[in-house]
């Protein structure tokens, strides 16, 4: 009787240990990156192609998901026309909810111009598009949507910490057949739709914040790609129209009230 009891106990214990070990091994497995080379290849082809273009222009429709204080989900829409000429020229005209803005960068200065308010601000800027984008984001807090796709080293930047990369499907964006790619990394999921034949250009780009419960996304749909746009230097330099006033950028660090006012 005693022996039977012991055997039974041993058996049950074994079952328990087995369950635990399976649980632990699946845990380890869940953290192992699942990266389909087919997905990363398409992403790399796209970023290489985009990074190699001397100049391009594109129309973007940017949708920013938001939640009202009253709890409803709403979208903010921004339409933009972007012209880029490497290594050091960029112009972006953006219109939409709460924004009416033209951004100029001519290799020496960057200017933000609000036509409806008739104000603009100009700052000296680094000599390359990438340097300027870093400066604009880190020092001025400027956001230029989908700019992470135009960096020459966009591929390693995008693939950093990626734990999942899959080709979801083939589908159509704006009438163009695309590969739908899904990538995941801690806190952020992103999806890219890349034209599956001809020029491997991105047609749609969705970044989802998975770090907070509403899981809001920022969606950019790209159309009217032109890899040989008119890119005369004059398009990238701001000439203030009559009646516009120069203002300044607020440095990112100055968020708290200053006792002595601004010493501009």
């Amino acid at each position: 009787m005693n022996r039977l009891n012991f055997r039974m106990a041993a058996a049950l214990l074994a079952v328990g240990v087995l369950t635990l070990s399976v649980t632990v091994s699946t845990e380890v497995r869940a953290q192992t990156p699942v990266v389909d080379p087919a997905a990363t290849q398409i992403l790399k082809r796209m970023t290489d192609y985009l990074g190699g273009l001397k100049k391009f222009s594109v129309h973007t429709q940017n949708t920013i998901e938001d939640v009202l204080d009253s709890g409803q989900r709403v979208d903010l829409e921004i339409s933009a026309s972007v012209v880029l000429s490497r290594p050091n020229k960029l112009r972006a005209e953006r219109k939409g909810d709460l924004i009416d803005q033209i951004f100029y960068y001519n290799g020496k200065t960057l200017t933000l111009y609000n036509p409806s308010n008739k104000v603009y601000a100009t700052e000296p800027a680094p000599g390359t598009i990438e340097g300027m984008l870093d400066f604009a984001r880190e020092s001025l807090g400027l956001v230029i949507p989908a700019s992470d796709l135009v960096y020459p080293n966009a591929f390693p930047l995008l693939m950093q910490d990626v734990t999942l990369a899959v080709v979801v499907d083939k589908t159509f964006i704006g009438g163009v057949k695309c590969d739908h790619l899904l990538f995941s990394r801690p806190g952020v999921d992103f999806q890219v739709w890349v034209a599956d034949s001809g020029r491997p250009l991105p047609r749609k780009y969705v970044v989802t914040d998975t770090g907070s419960p509403p899981m809001l996304s920022n969606t950019t749909v790209m159309s009217d790609w032109n890899v040989d746009p008119a890119a005369a230097d004059a398009r990238f330099t701001f000439v203030p129209p009559k009646g516009t006033k120069a203002i300044t950028f607020m440095p990112l660090t100055v968020q708290t009230p200053t006792p002595k006012g601004e010493s501009k």
């Binding site: 328990g16 369950t19 845990e27 995941s184």
Partner: peptide, 26 residues
């Protein structure tokens, strides 16, 4: 009861050992 508890581990969300952390993030 120990064995039962161990077998249930997989379905108790509050334990540090979880099957798929942040599965719903996708």
């Amino acid at each position: 009861s120990t064995a039962l508890v161990l077998m249930l581990v997989a379905d108790i969300p509050l334990l540090p050992v979880r099957l798929v952390p942040e599965a719903q993030a996708i």
